[in-house]
C-alpha cells in the first residue's frame, strides 16, 4: 500500500490537473523533491499554467486573491505552514474586502495546499502546527487531510468559490495512508465520523486521527465499541452529531496534537457541556510543556491512562 504522501499526492494531482484555466504555483513545485513529494508529477490542464515562483510568500498569498478577483482558479503549494505567517495580512484583510464587497460565487477560487511541519526535526523555528489559529483569525476553513475518506472529499473544495487552506502532516508522510470506512460527513466537511459505537466517543483534531484510531482499536480489544470522529477547522461547526454520540456513550476522549494554546476542542467541550450532559471526559493535548527545540514531536499518548480514566 502506498504511503500517506504518495497517496495524497496522487489524489491532489488527479484533481488539480483537470481544472480548466487553473494556475498551480509555488516554490520548487516542479523540481527538486517536488515539495517533499507533495507536487510530484504535477500537471495542469492545457489551458492552465504551472509557475515555479520566487521566494515571495507574502506576494504569493496576495496574488492568489488577485487571481480570484480576476476570475481565475488557483492553487498555491507550500512547503511549511509557518511560511504562511508571512501571508496572514492577506488571509484576514484582503479576504475581508473580497467577502464584503463582492458576490463571491462569481469570482475565481484560491486554495493553499501545504505540509504542516510537525515532525519536530527542522528546528525551533519550524514547529508551528496549529492552523486552527489561521481559521479563527480569518474565519476561513482549514482542513487537515489524513485518510482515504476525507482526502477526496476535501479536495473537491479546491474548485469551489472562495478561499481555504488544506494541510498535510509531515509527521504522517512516511506512514501508511490511513484507511477508514465512512459513517458520516458534514456537508461543510467540518466533521467526519469513521466508526459507530455505544461505549465511547473519540474526537480527533488537527492531525491526531492516527492516535484516535489506535485508541479505538485498543478499546475494541477490551470489548468496547467507540465512535471515532475527526474535526476540521471550519468556523462554527455543527457539533450535533458528536453531541448525540456523547449522549449515548457517556464517555468522551478529545485529542489535539497542535501546539496552539486556544484550541477548538475547548469550544466543542463547552458546547457539549452546555447541554447538561453527564459524561466522563479525557482531554489529550500538548499542554504547557512543549519542547521548542529539536524533538521527535510524536504526540505521545498514554492509552492505558486514558482507558483507566474512562473506567475501562
Amino acid at each position: 500500500m502506498a504511503n500517506y504522501i504518495a497517496s495524497v499526492n496522487q489524489l491532489i494531482m488527479s484533481k488539480c490537473s483537470k481544472i480548466p484555466g487553473a494556475v498551480l504555483y509555488g516554490q520548487n513545485l516542479n523540481n527538486g523533491t517536488f515539495i517533499s513529494g507533495l507536487t510530484k508529477n504535477i500537471a495542469v490542464h492545457e489551458t492552465g499554467r504551472i509557475i515555479n515562483t520566487p521566494n515571495v510568500e507574502n506576494t504569493l498569498c496576495g496574488m492568489g486573491f488577485g487571481m480570484m478577483l480576476a476570475g481565475v482558479k488557483c492553487v498555491y503549494f507550500v512547503k511549511q505552514l509557518d511560511f504562511m505567517l508571512l501571508g496572514l495580512d492577506h488571509f484576514v484583510n484582503t479576504y475581508n474586502f473580497i467577502r464584503c464587497s463582492r458576490n463571491i460565487n462569481e469570482l475565481g477560487s484560491f486554495s493553499i495546499i501545504m505540509l504542516v511541519c510537525d515532525q519536530g526535526m527542522q528546528g525551533p523555528q519550524s514547529s508551528f502546527s496549529g492552523y486552527a489559529d489561521f481559521s479563527s483569525m480569518a474565519r476561513i476553513a482549514c482542513y487537515s487531510i489524513t485518510n482515504n475518506q476525507d482526502t477526496p472529499r476535501i479536495l473537491e473544495t479546491v474548485t469551489q468559490p472562495g478561499f481555504r487552506m488544506i494541510g498535510l502532516s509531515s509527521r504522517l508522510c512516511r506512514s501508511e495512508f490511513i484507511q477508514t470506512n465512512l459513517v458520516y460527513s458534514a456537508d461543510d466537511n467540518s466533521v467526519f465520523q469513521y466508526t459507530e459505537g455505544a461505549d465511547a466517543t473519540i474526537v480527533c483534531f488537527n492531525f491526531s486521527l492516527a492516535e484516535g484510531q489506535a485508541l479505538h482499536k485498543k478499546l475494541l480489544e477490551k470489548g468496547m465499541a467507540s465512535s471515532l470522529f475527526s474535526v476540521n477547522y471550519v468556523p462554527y461547526p455543527d457539533w450535533t452529531r458528536i453531541r448525540q454520540s456523547v449522549a449515548i456513550t457517556g464517555r468522551l476522549v478529545v485529542m489535539d496534537d497542535s501546539k496552539s494554546v486556544h484550541l477548538p476542542a475547548y469550544s466543542m467541550l463547552d458546547a457539549i457541556a452546555g447541554d447538561n450532559l453527564q459524561f466522563k471526559r479525557v482531554v489529550v493535548v500538548r499542554g504547557p510543556n512543549v519542547d521548542f527545540g529539536i524533538d521527535p514531536d510524536l504526540f505521545p499518548v498514554n492509552y492505558n491512562d486514558i482507558m483507566l480514566r474512562l473506567g475501562v
Binding site: T59, G62, F65, G66, M68, L69, A70, G71, T94
Partner: peptide, 25 residues
C-alpha cells in the same frame, strides 16, 4: 476600480494576481 486596500503595501501583490489573471484569461 477592482480592489482598494487600507493596508500599506498590501495592494501590490493583489494587483500582480489580477494582472496574472488577465494573462490567463
Amino acid at each position: 476600480v477592482i480592489y482598494t486596500s487600507s493596508i500599506l503595501g498590501n495592494n501590490m501583490p493583489v494587483a500582480c494576481g489580477i494582472a496574472l489573471g488577465h494573462l490567463m484569461l
